[in-house]
Design a protein around this nucleic acid. Sequence first.
DNA 1: CTGAAAGCGCTAACAG
DNA 2: CTGTTAGCGCTTTCAG
Lengths: 338, 338
Amino acid sequence: MASIKDVATLAGVHRSTVSRIINGEGTFRADTRRKVECAMAELNYRPSAIARSLATASSNMAGLLVTFYTGGFFGEMMGQVQEELDRSNKFLITAQGHLSADGEREAIRRFHDLRCEGYVLNSRYLSDDELRSLAGEPTPFVLLDRIVPGLEDRCISFDHTKAAKLAVQHLIANGHQNIACITGPAGRSSSQARYLGYMDALRESGIVVNPRLCVEGNYERESGYLAVQSLYQSSQPFTALFSCNEEMMLGAVQYFHEHKINIPDQVSLISFDSVGLCSSLYPMLSEVHFPIRDMARAAVQLLMAQIAAKGNAVNDVVIERRFKPELIDRLSVRALKK
Amino acid sequence: MASIKDVATLAGVHRSTVSRIINGEGTFRADTRRKVECAMAELNYRPSAIARSLATASSNMAGLLVTFYTGGFFGEMMGQVQEELDRSNKFLITAQGHLSADGEREAIRRFHDLRCEGYVLNSRYLSDDELRSLAGEPTPFVLLDRIVPGLEDRCISFDHTKAAKLAVQHLIANGHQNIACITGPAGRSSSQARYLGYMDALRESGIVVNPRLCVEGNYERESGYLAVQSLYQSSQPFTALFSCNEEMMLGAVQYFHEHKINIPDQVSLISFDSVGLCSSLYPMLSEVHFPIRDMARAAVQLLMAQIAAKGNAVNDVVIERRFKPELIDRLSVRALKK
DNA sequence: CTGAAAGCGCTAACAG
DNA sequence: CTGTTAGCGCTTTCAG
């Protein structure tokens, strides 16, 4: 692979001249420039990003941590992050945290090893404390879909509680009282937040929360199916179901179809959704939309601002940090007559 | 960020000693090692992967080109590639080719800029010729799910034609004669291969291909829905449908549900599937399985073998390169009585 | 406008 | 067993 030196000798100039021309710094005689450009073309020369990184002490890389690449959700996130990074000509380094704090730590270590200029963390297992102490280090990072006290200026967040509440209130407004809920895994903060919203909505409408109407899932499709099954087994009557994510709702819908339970005649459905699964199901499901795409873009913008600010505060930039839920009503909620 | 020099001075030894200890080369006095380890720990030192790359002339990175991160399919691929790369402690660089040869070229350029040791290409828009000429360059690469004449030793391929044929033969074996087909976008080679399999199966059974029973989709969900719609509008009777991918089948299923067309009583269904969508639908759909995960792993293994071989042939390694289709029969194909 | 020289953080002979 | 030296490919003063 040709190096800058090869180009220089072929063009009959010094390496530093080539370097300047590549980087568009300074000004040159037209024929010098031409000679160099010809040499570069002839040798099919491309500067080594790595050598450049070392010389400039800036890697031009940014990291993104997700839990898993699979499942559609993270693809949306990654796609947006990449697009946004492309605009600044930065390289994207991705890593999976799998399902543990250790996995996430390991991912961050890799970002450091590569001297990433910053990273976006969709962290689920690192504690608030650990994240706060990480903030003491010089490398900037942004938390995507998380809010940790003290780190608000690095957080792109979404009000999961309010979103869930909105969904359930919609059900209530349509006359439903016995509303079942499939929650996410108990340990996860987003699960808790959504569940809280469910309960808040009920309570504020004076409906007593029936714990037997709440089944814990794990955000996977199958757990939605099983949840509905157990709901029917416990023979607690319900007219509506709220699912804390779309995958579980998919499983639930499968159960309903299999058992010839009509949507929305026999059961009304509303779900969290981020990747648009709800709109591609039959019938099209009502949802509260979780705008992960927009949030991902905002995260990168915030990160770039932080990198540019080099440790100083970034108050001047206007980037939306707290995203709001949006209710999309479709055909899966029936109005109950009193 | 601490450098190897800082560690060295703190430990009171030379940089090269530190380097050796990090890389486990040579042997040292116990207390030297301890001093160095303490210094590293104290400074929270991590060697710079970039500087290392430059010094060793090997970046420790591998590239992966996909068309888009979104959609689930590529997530599966990426996940496997990352896992496999992790085992060799290599960094993964991903890039999206979007939907053009230029996009793919640009992606490869980035791999070169970073001096990736090799890359896996899920290329759809680069011509065979261009790929062959790329093979003249020193950087090894592997083609995932593609077969280009002359580059067989770099190809991890799947027999799409045979897979489609298998699916359609299954339908025929169950007594179906009027078999509709939703194809992929006409320009794509995998589409053509699958369509060919469909036609072969019919022809070999002496069934005349009815072009009005074949509708072109674009591998997206909505196009499956639309395809079925147009199929019914053209009022060509059919008892079975074969879809060239799972996303389009999803759209089709939605149409059937919406129009109360029972599966499999009124229509039998079989689809291509790679990410397992078919098994999570109601009813569980019969499919020919496209083992993209296994293929992705094989691609990385082959790439690593090529990298290790440094330009020499890699005949000794036993890596499956041509994957075979597998028919998974579930509940969506009804046997027609004669 | 361009060359010379030093240096980024690390590794790799080569001595000793 | 460990220090010296040179160099990876590029950028960046500093001269001229």
